[in-house]
């Protein structure tokens, strides 16, 4: 089976989308032809549209931006739509991650992707909305299906099974198996503040107003 994976994170370095792709790849059996396309170099030409047309499965992994599909990915979706009609039946799966704790906040982006599938004539497979995206790399050493990675582990398994069998499934929304209040405090102390200090800022500078 030919699987084309589109990493929709614009980040230059590591991204949560990349980690999600790693998780799904680890569940998808050997013997499949998997190609991963990055769009982080900022141009449509980095995604080989012709090549993607011959896939059995398209997997989109991307971050939620302003409650919906990020603009750079939107451009690529529009370009892909222009390639229709597709000669084959292609199934589309998505794993969308967002910064806020609740994976449910990805529901609009999932609906947008379904509309895109309808417009492009592709078949909808399934989507997972993953909350607390930034936390994912902090807990990447914990095996999937265990501790805080319990919920995402179950979701990844389900989507991967459906993907391998080209089946459709219900939307799945997950948040870490972890208290939200703790996550909220940890976000400041383990994420925003160390990064700001590294840039030579004091914590009070983060609230700076431009006027």
């Amino acid at each position: 089976m030919k699987i084309s994976v589109i990493n929709g994170s614009p980040k230059k370095g590591k991204s949560t989308s990349e980690l999600m792709i790693k998780y799904i790849s680890s569940q998808v059996g050997e013997g499949n032809d998997v190609s991963i396309y990055g769009i982080n170099k900022g141009a449509v030409k980095y995604v080989n549209l012709k090549d993607i047309k011959n896939s059995d499965v398209l997997l989109f992994a991307f971050p939620l931006y302003v409650d919906s599909i990020p603009s750079h990915l939107l451009q690529i979706l529009i370009e892909l739509e222009k390639q229709k009609p597709f000669s084959k039946e292609i199934m589309v799966y998505c794993i969308i991650n967002n910064g806020f704790f609740e994976g449910e906040q990805n529901h609009i982006a999932i609906k947008q992707m379904k509309l895109w599938c309808d417009a492009t004539g592709l078949k909808w497979g399934q989507a997972i909305g993953v909350g607390a995206g930034e936390m994912m790399s902090f807990i990447a050493d914990i095996p999937l299906g265990h501790g805080p990675n319990k919920n995402i582990g179950i979701a990844i398994k389900r989507l991967s099974n459906n993907l391998m069998n080209k089946k459709s499934g219900e939307d799945i929304f997950v948040s870490p198996n972890w208290p939200r209040f703790l996550w909220k405090i940890q976000a400041s102390f383990f994420f925003w503040h160390p990064r700001a200090r590294k840039n030579g800022l004091k914590i009070r500078h983060l609230k700076r107003k431009q006027i």
């Binding site: 994170s9 614009p10 980040k11 230059k12 991204s15 982080n40 900022g42 971050p63 931006y65 990020p70 603009s71 750079h72 925003w192 990064r195 700001a196 840039n199 800022l201 500078h205 983060l206 609230k207 700076r208 107003k209 431009q210």
Partner: peptide, 17 residues
């Protein structure tokens, strides 16, 4: 216009911009 590169610089490098 350039697309956002997801760096969060607008929060942790040049806050507000």
């Amino acid at each position: 216009i350039k697309n956002c590169i997801g760096c969060f610089g607008c929060w942790i490098k040049t806050p507000g911009k």
